[in-house]
Design a protein around this nucleic acid. Structure first.
Length: 933
DNA sequence: GAGTTTGAAACT
DNA sequence: CAGTTTCAAACTC
């Protein structure tokens, strides 16, 4: 629509830029240029994206500094590419099966997002482009990451897939290979072009909305291109999943939405094509993004790593994007009245009816035919995007805001809500809904693989998902729920308390305009709800800019300011403090910074630890700690104990169990996604106390999970599962929403971990990036650049790589397993002794999240420390010495970590990779290793 | 509902 | 980095 020519140019440029940024600049460029050239036919489709890419290229650094904002702005525009990219990338990165799902889901999500994006784009294209441009400038990778982030839903899953490998060289090689594969794909696409796919897509668009059709027409060129590319994908998908007729639609929609064939291609191709192809597809799809994505696919780990970094950032961005995107998307969805409603809902709290309508709309969109949903579920594709798609792409989009909720918010809410077990059941409907929703949204984004789970959850989730609705929904439902819940005490408290019946937080700020961390809503990364009694509130969608700016400012001061406060301790071993069976081991979860209570003895909600239903840890400065969830002293002891082999053994066992859980119950992710999760687990445990039903907690209003927060959320999520208590809680949740969990479970854990890692990394990386002026590519580029120069960077890279890979793997359910296996192994190898981490992939996250620095980083403490300085924790930042020592002891040293990383990377590709691509991946790996060596 | 207490966040 | 102030939640009455 906009200007294909420009887009094309931009795409090429963007791709090149992205590649460069992401990977070794010079070499990559050439491959990218080749790519672009090869893709030239496709370019038209990509045009939009490309244009964005251009802009982005033009505007360089801002992205990082204000990626979120950009992301938000971009969200609408980026959404398309993002979705495409993510799905594609995810798919490619993920298992084949995953790919399939991813494709479907991705397609669905894409289609929705695309539609929305287009609709919005029409009106906002210009602005969006500009925004994108700004973003793009940051870095191609950054773009990708942003896109990913934008796609929150997808991203989550994708994010897992994307982990960037710092090694640019390898990436370059991969790129080259990917280019070849791309060319191959092009040939295929051109051939297959699968008119079918195009038609289908078109149909989908038409069905979706007349606007979409118009857009499509306008994008006819794109569609053609898309048809060429996507068709293969679509075809392949269809071949794979006939059931997924919806897939076709998805593909179509996605292709249309994206307008860029590339995206569609990426989505579809991943499934069909081997990794290389997938990569190529992804590359094509996202163009700018894709460029990076492609790298992902090809490079596999390397790209993923970078992406992962982006994801981390993207996370926060996502939230923002979602917020923005949602509205936009909704608007776009206006095609479907339901969607439009959703959109409206986003900004304006949607009424339950609206939500329902949205849901229905979503259903229509995603799978007007049940097939879609089923397809999403059944379809392998769904997993990646499924949640959203299932959730109804548009709706899912809206979700993002909610998704943004931080664990903190959740945690707080949960504890407050006392999401007691009762709450859970109730919640299962509601809380579960909310949590699920939030988590779902997250999960949807995160784990496309979860689609299945989402299916189950999807319905409930759908409602939940509607983020905008969340508020209203929450309020309304909350009321109902409250009634249902019978949490009368809570209700009473709720009135006075900050937690709504929905479980959503609500504040009563009077002087801060709800733009400071004093505001629970703001701190939780959510917009204030109508139920809030705040005065002069600016924490509302209307003031999104202000909110984002403030957030950025706060994050600049403390990158972890919005990170979840509750982190699961590496030591998941549950310990009954005795008071309540529920009480978790002090080590299972802890407050990141710890409390500083002096008079409350950590027995009142003044204590953040207590409020979060977690025991005090060594990080606490409390005096006379009597925290019923675990006293500081106990915590220290437990850690010491953990240091013992028993701990190791336990951790191993736990890890295995967790793996199983993850593989089978990744579902948790959804919940975990919700920042609430971590808190939930505690809350759940606490639920015994039955204080609060967390139900709402969820996120209804999430808008901007900070990158940190996001990761943290993830981590928290991961954490929750890890801890036995968490696992228990998770089980509870699972039971309530087993399906959801199951679905999400796929690879999400990985994702979470990765995200956590990413977050941590990102946070640090951000700091690094800031230092390095990484604006363009917070994650990789900076990493890569820095890596060359600074050991830290390398460390980060390595770390990111490890995590990232896992993520990619995690994307696919199967991957998740593999991923975990691989990632875990690497970690284990690294940590070796680190039982804590090993036990659960989540634990890793936790570990990282806890300190705010990944274990790996810890290992490389020196560099990390520097980064940490900026961390909010600064005062307390120094991670528990015990842990550090353990970690250090466990890990031979930074060198090992690197090796580890390398190994992990090498191992990852196979996991993620589609069988087809294995060869390429292996090669890449070998290259990677060589380079690293 | 008003007032007090508390501890985190923000500021210096 | 430490100390102080500000803030809003938690709590009490």
């Amino acid at each position: 629509m906009d200007s294909p020519e420009v887009t094309v140019k931009t795409t090429a440029a963007a791709a090149g830029s992205t590649v460069q940024s992401s990977n070794s600049p010079p070499v990559q460029e050439s491959p990218f240029s080749n790519f672009l050239r090869n893709l030239s036919p496709i370019e038209p489709v990509k045009a939009q994206h490309v244009s964005q890419g251009f802009l982005g290229l033009n505007s360089p650094p801002l992205a990082f500094t204000s990626p979120r904002i950009n992301a938000l702005r971009e969200a609408s525009s980026l959404k398309r590419p993002r979705y495409h990219l993510f799905p594609c990338a995810d798919v490619s990165a993920n298992d084949d099966g995953c790919k399939k799902f991813a494709d479907c889901t991705g397609e669905l999500g894409k289609s929705d997002s695309l539609l929305d994006g287009r609709l919005v784009a029409d009106t906002q294209k210009d602005s969006d482009k500009k925004n994108f441009v700004q973003v793009q400038p940051d870095i191609s990778l950054g773009r990708v990451g942003e896109y990913l982030a934008d796609r929150m839903e997808v991203d989550c899953a994708n994010s897992t897939t994307y982990e960037v490998n710092p090694d640019l060289e390898q990436s370059v090689d991969l790129l080259q290979s990917s280019v070849s594969s791309i060319t191959y794909l092009k040939g295929r696409i051109s051939k297959s072009d699968s008119n079918n796919g195009m038609k289908i897509k078109v149909n989908a668009h038409l069905t979706l909305s007349g606007k979409a059709e118009e857009q499509l027409q306008g994008e006819s060129t794109e569609e053609q291109e898309c048809g060429a590319l996507p068709p293969d994908e679509c075809n392949t998908e269809s071949n794979f999943f006939i059931d997924l007729a919806s897939k076709k639609q998805e593909c179509d929609t996605s292709a249309q939405d994206e307008g860029s064939v590339h995206e569609g291609k990426s989505a579809c191709h991943p499934q069909l094509l081997p990794e290389p192809f997938q990569i190529a597809q992804t590359y094509e799809d996202s163009e700018g993004n894709a460029g990076t994505i492609v790298l992902h696919g090809l490079v596999g780990t390397t790209m993923h790593d970078t992406e992962a970094n982006h994801h981390q950032r993207g996370f926060s961005r996502r939230c923002l994007q979602f917020v923005e995107a949602q509205p936009k998307a909704i608007v776009s969805s206006s095609n479907s009245s339901n969607q439009a409603n959703d959109v409206t809902c986003l900004r304006a709290p949607a009424t339950p009816a609206e939500l329902e309508g949205l849901d229905s709309s979503h259903v229509d969109l995603n799978a007007t035919s049940s097939q879609r949903q089923l397809g999403n579920l059944s379809q392998p594709v769904t997993p990646l995007f499924p949640p959203r798609p299932s959730g109804k792409s548009p709706i899912t989009i809206s979700k993002p805001p909610g998704i943004g909720l931080h664990l903190n918010s959740i945690v707080n809410a949960l504890p407050k809500g006392g999401a007691a077990t009762v709450g859970i059941k109730l919640a299962s409907a509601e809380c579960g809904m909310f949590e699920n929703n939030a988590s779902v949204a997250v999960s949807s984004m995160i784990s496309e693989s979860q689609s299945i789970g989402h299916l189950n959850l999807s319905q409930p989730l759908e409602h939940h998902e509607t983020p905008p609705t969340e508020r209203k929904f929450n309020s309304e439902h909350a009321d109902n729920f409250e009634e249902l819940n019978q949490l009368s005490p809570k209700k009473k408290r709720k009135k006075s308390s900050t937690i709504d019946s929905d479980g959503c937080k609500r504040c009563n700020c009077k002087k801060t305009q709800c733009l400071k961390l004093y505001c629970d809503c703001f701190a939780a990364g959510i917009y204030c709800a109508d139920s809030c009694t705040c005065q002069g509130c600016r924490n509302r969608p209307e003031y999104e800019d202000s909110v984002l700016e403030t957030r950025q400012q706060i994050e600049s001061r403390n990158p972890l300011a919005f990170a979840p406060k509750i982190v699961q301790h590496a030591n998941d071993i549950p310990v009954n403090n005795g008071d309540d069976g529920n009480q978790l081991m002090p080590s299972s979860a802890k407050h990141k910074r710890g409390c500083n209570c002096k008079k409350s003895m950590c027995l009142k909600k003044y204590c953040e630890c207590y409020q979060a239903n977690v025991g005090c840890s060594d990080g606490c400065r409390c005096e006379g700690c009597k925290n019923s969830y675990g006293r500081k002293e106990d915590y220290v002891r437990s850690e010491e104990m953990l240091g013992n082999r028993a701990c190791k053994e336990r951790s191993e066992v736990m890890f295995d169990n967790k793996l199983e859980l993850v593989t089978s119950k990744n579902f948790l992710h959804a919940e975990f996604y919700d920042p609430h999760l971590t808190p939930l687990t505690p809350s759940l445990q606490c639920s015994d106390q039955g204080k609060d039903a967390p139900k709402s907690r969820f996120l209804s209003r999430r808008y901007v999970p900070s990158a940190d927060s996001d990761p943290t959320i993830i981590s928290s999520y991961a954490n929750t599962p890890r801890s036995q208590k968490n696992s228990d809680s998770n089980d509870m949740l699972l039971e309530t929403s087993k399906e959801i969990v199951d679905v999400d479970s796929y690879g999400q854990g990985m994702d979470y971990r990765n995200e956590d890692m990413m977050d941590q990394l990102s946070s640090r990386g951000d700091a690094l990036a800031d230092l390095c002026h990484l604006t363009p590519l917070p994650g990789f580029p900076s990493m890569a650049v820095s890596s060359s120069g600074s050991s830290k960077a390398t460390d980060w890279k390595n770390i990111s790589g490890l995590q990232l890979y896992p993520r990619s793997d995690s994307l696919s359910s199967s991957r998740s397993l593999h991923w975990r296996g691989s990632p875990v192994t690497p970690i284990t190898q690294l940590s070796g002794n680190k039982n804590k981490q090993e036990p659960d992939s989540d634990s890793r996250v936790y570990d990282i999240s806890e300190d705010g620095t990944p274990d790996i980083l810890r290992e490389e403490s020196a560099p990390i420390k520097s980064v940490k300085v900026s961390s909010p924790n600064r005062k307390r930042v120094s991670p528990p010495q015990n842990r550090v020592n353990e970690i250090r002891s466990s890990t031979s040293g930074p060198l090992k970590s690197r090796k580890f990383i390398l190994r992990a990377v090498s191992s990852f590709p196979p996991l993620t990779p589609c069988i087809d691509s294995k060869g390429s991946t292996d090669e890449n790996r070998s290259d990677f290793q060589e380079n690293k060596e």
